[in-house]
C-alpha cells in the first residue's frame, strides 16, 4: 500500500516536471525571449529517461512536453532566420549576385518562385465539360488485370508430331496415375509456358477421349488429374 502511494507520488512529480517544460516554452513564446536560452537537448534527455511508462496521465504529459519542445525548435529556426536576414544588407546581396553566374542565379530564383497556375487555351465552359468527361469515364473503365496484359502464347502442334507427342504425354500421365491415385495438374504439366500450353491441349484431348478425368479441388484451389472417369465425359476449362 505504502509502495503504491510512493509510486503515485513519483508519477505526480514526473507529470509536474513535464508541465513545467510546457510553461517554460509558453513563457519564452509570450515574452519573446531568446529561444536558445532553453537547453532542448537536456530536457529531451530527461524525458527519455522514463519514456517507457504505461501510465496514461504520464504519457499525455510527455506528449504535451514534446509538443512544446517542437514549438521551441521552430522558434529557434525563426530566430536564426531573422538573424540571417538582418545580416543581409542590400550591398552584400548585390555583391553576391554579381559574383554568381547565370545558372546559379536562375537556380536561386527557381527555389524562391511559386509560379502562377492557370489553364490556357480553354474557356471555363470547356474546362467544366472536360472535367465532367473525365469524371464520367472513371467508373466505366474496367480494372486492368495483370493477366490481361500477358502476351498470348501459341504452341504449334505439327500434324506429323501430334500422335507422337500425344503418345509420349499419355504414357507419362499414366505412369503418374499408376496405383489409382490423383495427381495435381502442376505436377503433370512442364515448367515452360509454351510447353504447358501444348501439354494442356494434349491433356484436353485425352479428357475428351475419356482416358483420364479432371477434378477441381476447391480446398487447395487446384486441378487434379484423375484416372479414367466412370460415366459421362465432362469437359473442364482450365487456366494455364
Amino acid at each position: 500500500m505504502c509502495q503504491l502511494s510512493a509510486r503515485r507520488r513519483g508519477d505526480r512529480s514526473r507529470i509536474e516536471a513535464r508541465d513545467r517544460i510546457v510553461m517554460l516554452v509558453d513563457e519564452v513564446e509570450r515574452e519573446g525571449k531568446d529561444p536558445f536560452s532553453v537547453s532542448v537537448g537536456e530536457l529531451l534527455a530527461d524525458l527519455r529517461e522514463d519514456y517507457d511508462s504505461d501510465d496514461v496521465e504520464l504519457l499525455l504529459a510527455d506528449s504535451r512536453a514534446i509538443e512544446a519542445l517542437s514549438r521551441l525548435v521552430e522558434m529557434q529556426d525563426e530566430w536564426v532566420e531573422g538573424r540571417l536576414l538582418a545580416t543581409i544588407s542590400p550591398e552584400v546581396l548585390r555583391r553576391r549576385a554579381e559574383a554568381l553566374d547565370a545558372r546559379e542565379l536562375a537556380g536561386a530564383l527557381y527555389s524562391a518562385q511559386f509560379p502562377a497556375v492557370g489553364v490556357s487555351n480553354v474557356n471555363e465552359v470547356y474546362l467544366v465539360r472536360a472535367a465532367e468527361y473525365w469524371e464520367g469515364l472513371r467508373p466505366q473503365r474496367p480494372p486492368e488485370s495483370p493477366a490481361r496484359r500477358e502476351r498470348p502464347v501459341t504452341a504449334p502442334l505439327e500434324p506429323d508430331n501430334f500422335e507422337e507427342d500425344l503418345s509420349s504425354f499419355r504414357s507419362r500421365l499414366m505412369g503418374a496415375l499408376e496405383g489409382g491415385g490423383e495427381v495435381s495438374l502442376d505436377e503433370v504439366l512442364s515448367g515452360g509456358r509454351e510447353a504447358r500450353v501444348r501439354e494442356a491441349y494434349l491433356l484436353a484431348h485425352l479428357v475428351t477421349r475419356g482416358e483420364v478425368g479432371l477434378r477441381y479441388d476447391p480446398e487447395r484451389d487446384r486441378y487434379l488429374v484423375t484416372p479414367r472417369p466412370e460415366g459421362e465425359v465432362r469437359s473442364v476449362v482450365i487456366e494455364v
Binding site: E81, L84, I88, E104, G107, A108, L109, S111, Q113, F114
Partner: peptide, 14 residues
C-alpha cells in the same frame, strides 16, 4: 510569385 526573402537567403547560401 517570388518570395524575395527566400531568394535573398538562397543567393547568400550559394
Amino acid at each position: 510569385e517570388v518570395d524575395v526573402e527566400r531568394l535573398a537567403r538562397a543567393l547568400i547560401a550559394i
